Structure formats: structure tokens, C-alpha cells
Amino acid sequence: MITSTGEARAGTAQPASVQLPGIVLGVGMGGFVDGILLHQLLRWHHMLSSTNHDHIGLKYYNPKTVSGLEMNTMWDGIFHAVCWIAVLTGLAILYSRVTHNRRAVWTSRVLWGWMFVGWGLFNLVEGLLDHQALGIHHVHGGPDQAWWDAGFLVLGGLLLIGGYLLQRSGQPFDPNAAARRTGSRPA
């Protein structure tokens, strides 16, 4: 029987990729860095802190008033819940794909590279959507906010490119390789 190269490849078992779980983990972790560092520790912005100048007509919740801070804090909490769900989802996907030698995955450039790609994607999407398109908040509001927002986008691009290059420099990981070497089946 003659098969094409594509058909032959389709019949071979490919190792489960860490690309998707790495990206999802990176999105969640990038969101946590943003929320914890910029929203909570530095208090540069909250989820709705620029709605007095937004592009969609949301009610303004001044974060310098108690009621405004309560609303902004609630939306920061919703944001953190979404980040938490992303991290849990990424871990679940990773756990389902990696059955052996999990330590090698956590120390691999491939997983960490994809996580940086995910963090970069988070910055780019969040920066373009929330800072630019919706205008609901900015990295650091004020007269120089355009520079802060641009820096956030540049950081996102650098994380995406750096992560992609990092994962390419790593060894592809086959989570079932240990099982095949020992003759056992994956759990």
C-alpha cells in the first residue's frame, strides 16, 4: 500500500505537545503579575480606573473614593479569578499530557518558552484591548500614560519573541519516552 507523507505521519504517534498548556499557563501567570504588581502593590491602576476617559461609555468609578475603590477591587477580583482559572486549566492540560518524567518538563526550555509566549500574548491582548480599544485603564495613568502603555506592549512583544526563541532552543519533550524505554505503558 502506498501512502503519502501526510498519511504516514498521521499514523505515527506524536508526543503530546507542551505548547498549549505552556501558553495557557503563561497567560494566567502574566495576568497575575499584572494584577498583583500593577493593581495591588504599585496601585497604578485598577480594572475600571480610567472609565472617565474610556471609549465605550462605562460609568466612572473613581478609585480614590470608597465606593469607586470597592467597584474597582471587585473587578480586579474577577480579573484574578480568570487568571486563576487559566493557571488551573494550563496545569490540567499539562498534567493530562505529561505522564512520565514531569520534572524534566518543568525544567525544560520548551515549557518555559511557551509560558513566556503566553505572558507576551496576555500583555499584547490586554494592552491593545483594555488600554487602547476600550480605554478602561492604563498602565500608569497621567500625562505620560501613552508611553507606559507603549512600554507594556513592547514588553509583551519581547516576551513573545524571547519565549518563542527560548522554546526553539530546547529539546523537544516526549512525555512517554521513559515509558517506551522501560517497556511500560503510560499511566
Rank of each mutant, 00 (worst) to 15 (best):
I2E: 14
I2L: 12
T5L: 04
G6N: 11
E7R: 01
E7N: 01
E7L: 06
A8T: 00
A8Q: 00
R9L: 12
R9S: 05
T12H: 01
T12G: 01
Q14D: 03
P15D: 01
A16M: 01
S17D: 02
S17C: 03
Q19H: 10
L20E: 10
P21D: 08
P21K: 10
G26T: 09
V27Y: 04
V27N: 05
G28I: 06
M29I: 15
G30R: 13
G31P: 12
G31T: 12
G35W: 12
H39L: 10
L41F: 13
R43L: 05
H45M: 10
H46F: 09
S49K: 06
S49T: 12
S49H: 10
S49I: 08
S50V: 07
S50D: 15
N52T: 00
H55K: 14
H55P: 08
I56H: 03
G57F: 11
G57N: 09
Y61H: 15
K64Y: 14
V66M: 11
V66P: 06
V66W: 12
L69D: 15
L69W: 15
M71K: 13
N72V: 05
T73G: 10
M74W: 15
D76T: 12
G77V: 11
I78A: 08
I78K: 04
F79M: 09
F79G: 03
A81Q: 03
A81E: 05
V82M: 09
V82R: 02
W84K: 06
I85K: 02
A86S: 15
V87Y: 05
V87E: 02
T89V: 13
T89C: 14
L91G: 10
Y95D: 14
V98I: 07
T99R: 08
T99G: 04
N101G: 08
T107A: 03
S108Y: 04
L111M: 07
M115Q: 13
F116H: 15
V117P: 01
V117Y: 04
V117G: 01
W119P: 01
W119F: 14
G120A: 07
L121M: 14
L121H: 07
N123V: 04
N123T: 05
L124R: 01
L124W: 01
V125W: 11
L128R: 05
L128N: 11
L129T: 09
L129S: 09
L129E: 06
D130S: 08
D130L: 14
H131M: 10
A133V: 15
G135M: 05
H137Q: 14
H137A: 11
V139H: 07
G141T: 07
G141D: 09
G142A: 03
G142Y: 08
D144E: 07
Q145V: 10
W148R: 07
D149R: 07
A150W: 05
F152D: 02
G156E: 08
L158C: 11
L159V: 10
L159N: 13
L160R: 01
G163V: 14
Y164M: 14
L165G: 08
L166N: 06
S169T: 13
G170P: 03
Q171K: 14
P172N: 01
F173Y: 09
D174N: 02
N176M: 05
A177V: 01
S184M: 03
S184G: 02
